[in-house]
Nucleic acid binder design. Structure first.
Lengths: 143, 143
DNA sequence: TTTAAATTATGACAAAAATCATATTTAGGA
DNA sequence: TCCTAAATATGATTTTTGTCATAATTTAAA
């Protein structure tokens, strides 16, 4: 479904959503280790997310990555779009150029409407919502 | 969602489901061209499907690939499992080792039940069903 | 039994995704 | 102002996926 890169990115951003703040920035090492992702590679991904203003960062002493209050209003789909690109989730299962309900491929009616629901769900919860859910113990973020 | 390999394989098998029979085997060239997939690569994929007895083939003069009546009772998930492996579809969205409804990751409740429905749909329709649907013009198999 | 037409097996090659390494830039604190 | 700790930029390397080429094997028909 997602590339490894996107999985890594989502885990890292959720980690930041729970543990970071403007006042408490987190260094790449301290993100990579708990979520079990190669540090140098994660650094690249977070740099890209930062450039696309999905997350925030500051260089230098006392610097690190964090989510601003604005960042916390983003959702999972924003992360996916930046790392995997919008096409990956939006395209037809068989990558047919013009597959739609008027002209459906053989798999269209087996998956389309469920896929739309999933997409809507990805858009409907903010990172803040997900962080609160995690903090309340209703979901987990381990290996 | 799927690898290119799986997309190619599904398109090819659907093509065989519509156009081939025990009496009418189809040569690799005549499958690859209409579905627009690199011929040599498709050959490898079909060989694998043949080895796993998802499709049938005979060598030599008058040979080619085809679906037996038995083959036609297979479903889309059988193809996916052979080419992409079962894990790709079954694993947690974030690839967490033990994510389930008791111990859900942050995305679990956003996608799990819809994903199950899609999986069930992939299993519930036989290749024959899909071929009939295609033949009736209710779905299409172009580029 | 020979020949031609097909799959099958094998491996080389290319492109993309993932990983690792390092030099540069930036910001805070002494 | 200078030093140190951090992100950033860049690119090299490795692994995986996708692609191409070809020799070996098998089968049907002449």
């Amino acid at each position: 479904m997602f590339s490894n890169s996107t999985k890594y990115a989502i885990k890292a951003v959720l980690y930041l959503a729970v543990h970071s703040s403007e006042q408490h920035k987190i260094v790449i090492n301290d993100i990579a280790e708990p979520i079990n992702v190669p540090k140098a590679y994660l650094a690249k991904l977070l740099q890209e997310l930062s450039r696309q203003s999905i997350i925030s960062s500051t260089k230098g002493l006392k610097g690190g990555f964090y989510l601003s209050n604005k960042d916390r209003e983003r959702n999972i789909k924003d992360i996916i779009d930046v790392i995997d690109g919008e096409d990956r989730l939006n395209s037809c299962l068989l990558s047919l150029k013009d597959c739609d309900s008027k002209n459906p491929c053989s798999l269209h009616h087996l998956a389309y409407s469920q896929k739309q629901i999933i997409l809507d769900n990805f858009k409907s919860k903010s990172l803040n919502d997900l962080a609160m859910h995690l903090k309340s113990g209703k979901s987990v973020l381990p290996l």
